[in-house]
Write a protein that binds this DNA or RNA. Structure first.
Lengths: 128, 128
DNA sequence: ATATAATATGACGTTAACGTCATGTTTGCA
DNA sequence: TGCAAACATGACGTTAACGTCATATTATAT
């Protein structure tokens, strides 16, 4: 189904209309083409774009950070200068990500050892 | 230096007074003992507690989530019932953490491959 | 043709995690 | 003893990421 209006778009992408309009307002989503009437029309790409945004949000990126990288998945970024810029952004995000991964890993083993400690205690102190 | 007032505390922990008072107000930090005058007094433990909170924040936990787990590092949680409760919380956080780790890992390799793609393009299209 | 559903736009409300005054009391030092 | 620096408390302000009306126009089913 190509060329849908906001109702179908939000249903397929699992977001609210408010979210779509908010994203349009901050330039995260290109505001769909409008006909003679005031209505906006969207395509399949808008759906996948919204889904991609959702993925990146779950990772913990802010909408501003997402705006930096999401273009990458949907445009051709021609020219040397833009490509260099995107490359810089990507490298920064990679460094950030590695830090987060490390911190999360430490937290995980912290959790793990605490869990084991509690389990041992409970096993020792009652018949369960 | 044990038994300090808020000025030293915030300097050592690298947070503002507002932050300390906010944490006290939401029960994340025990509000330091007060003398006859209205002043609060804190100890070394408060410093390390603030630092622990900061670590957990960097991982992406909300203050509410932190309140759930931070006690663990500073109290004895005696009794079987409380221990069971904490154990439940820990297990939930472990599952959350594993999900985040997986998502972050995927994002990382996504970034990585994009970076390589851009690098190859730049190498091919100019002498650098 | 008309009632109902869908859309557009604007404005105010909300939560988290504090920042920033304003005002009043306490402490520490010359 | 006097006075600037430190502290306490209260209230209003701020940003992100939307939620929730209210109102007006357009689309659609009967």
């Amino acid at each position: 189904m190509n060329r849908m209006r906001i109702g179908d778009l939000t249903e397929r992408a699992g977001v609210t209309q408010r979210t779509v309009r908010y994203y349009e307002s901050i330039g995260l989503l290109p505001s769909g083409e409008r006909e003679g009437n005031g209505h906006h029309y969207y395509t399949e790409e808008t759906v996948t774009r919204l889904q991609k945004i959702d993925q990146l949000k779950k990772i913990g990126l802010s909408l501003e950070e997402i705006r930096d990288v999401v273009e990458l998945y949907f445009t051709d970024t021609s020219g040397v200068q833009p490509k260099r810029k995107v490359l810089g952004i990507l490298r920064r995000h990679l460094a950030d990500t590695d830090q987060k991964l490390e911190a999360l890993g430490l937290f995980r083993s912290d959790l793990q050892s605490n869990i084991e400690r509690f389990e041992r205690w409970l096993e020792a102190n009652e018949g369960d």
